Amino acid sequence: MTNKILVIFLIFYFLFLSTSAQDNLLDQLREEDKTEWNTHTTTFKAIRLINGHTVETREKGNLEFLISHRFGRINSGAYQFFGMDQANMRLGLDYAWQDWLTLGIGRNSFSKLYDGFAKISLFQQNEGKIKQPVTLVWLSGASINTIRRPEIPMNLNRRLQYVHQLLAASKLYQNIALQLMPTYIHRNLVREPSAPNAFFAVGAGLSYRLSKSVYLNVEYYHRFLDQENGTANPIAIGVDIETGGHVFQLQLTNAQQMTETGFIPSTSGDFFNGDIHFGFNITRNFQLGNTRPIKK
C-alpha cells in the first residue's frame, strides 16, 4: 500500500513540474502570437456530470452549495410511491481557493458518511498558435462512514475510503463534450474476505447540448475487478437545466450513493432490470471575492 501511495504522489509531482514548464512556454507563445489567444469556454455546465465530477472548476473566491437527492428504486412499486418514500441526501460545499484549486466537503445521509476532496486543474483546453485539445484535472478525495455497526468493531481506520482520479475532457464544437475518468479506489474495509481493498476503474461521460440552457448527459464506470456479489457497474442518464445562478440536474441511475468511494465500488442495482433511482442535484454559486467578466 505504501508503494502505491508513493507512485501516486510521484506521478502527481511530475505532472506538476510539466505543468509549470508548459505554462512558461505558453506565456512566451502568447506574447509572440499576433492572433488572439482563446481559452475555451466551460466544457460542462456543472461541477458534477451526474454522479461523478467534471473537469469544471470555478474562479478564485467562488463558493458552490450543492444539494443532491437519490430516491429509492422506481421498480419498488406503488406502495413505496415508486421510490419516492425512500430518499438519501448529500449536502456539499465546494470552495475555489485559487482558480486552479477547489476544496470540497460534504455530508451524506447514506451510511452517515462525510467526504472531502481536493480538485486541481492541470491543463485548460484552449486555442491559439499551439492548441491544447483537452482539459486535465486531478481529483483526490476521502470519505469516512460514521454509521454504527454493532456486529463488528469499527475503528477509524476501518471507516476510511480513498479515491484518486485523472479527469480528461474535451469540448467538441459547441454542442458535445466528452470526458474520461481513470480512477483508483482504496477501501480499508470490504464486505467480503475475497474482495480486493484496492482496484482500478475507468469512467466515460458525454454531454450534448439540446438547447441554449438544456443538456443531455450520460455517464458510465467500468470496474477492473471480479464482480462482488450483488454489485454492478454504475450507469446514469441525466438532464441539466440552467436558470441564472442555478443549475438543476435531473437523473436516472442505478447508483444510490453520491461519492466516488461509494457508487463506484458499491452500486447494487441492475439498470436494465429496472433497478433505477430517480435523483436530482441543485447548485447555487456565491462569489465571495472580486469577480471577473464571465466567459460566454
Rank of each mutant, 00 (worst) to 15 (best):
T2K: 07
K4E: 10
K4W: 04
L6M: 10
V7C: 05
F9P: 03
L10W: 09
L10C: 08
I11F: 07
I11H: 02
F12Q: 05
F12Y: 14
Y13L: 11
L15G: 04
T19M: 10
D23Y: 03
Q28W: 15
L29I: 11
E32T: 12
T35D: 15
E36M: 08
E36P: 03
T41I: 15
F44D: 00
K45I: 03
R48C: 10
R58D: 12
I67V: 14
I74K: 01
A78I: 15
F81H: 10
M89W: 08
L91Y: 13
D94A: 09
D94V: 05
Y95M: 06
A96N: 06
Q98Y: 11
D99E: 10
L101P: 00
G106C: 04
R107Q: 07
F110M: 14
S111Y: 10
A118M: 09
K119E: 04
K119M: 05
S121R: 14
Q124P: 00
I130E: 09
Q132R: 10
V137Q: 01
W138N: 07
W138S: 08
G141S: 00
A142V: 12
I144S: 07
N145S: 09
I147V: 10
R149Y: 14
P153G: 11
N155M: 07
L156R: 08
L156C: 07
N157T: 08
R158V: 09
R159S: 14
L167R: 04
A168G: 05
A168E: 00
L172Y: 06
N175C: 13
N175K: 15
A177Y: 03
L178F: 13
L178A: 10
Q179S: 06
L180S: 06
P182L: 03
R187E: 11
V190D: 03
R191A: 10
P193Q: 15
S194R: 06
F200Q: 03
L210P: 04
S211Q: 07
L216R: 11
E219C: 09
R223Q: 07
R223D: 02
Q227S: 11
G230T: 11
I235A: 01
A236F: 01
V239E: 06
I241G: 00
G245P: 07
G245M: 11
H246M: 10
V247F: 01
V247N: 06
V247T: 12
L250H: 03
T253Y: 06
N254R: 01
Q256V: 09
Q256I: 14
T261H: 04
T267M: 02
T267D: 03
G269F: 02
F271H: 02
G274F: 06
F278C: 04
G279Q: 03
G289H: 05
G289K: 05
R292N: 13
P293L: 08
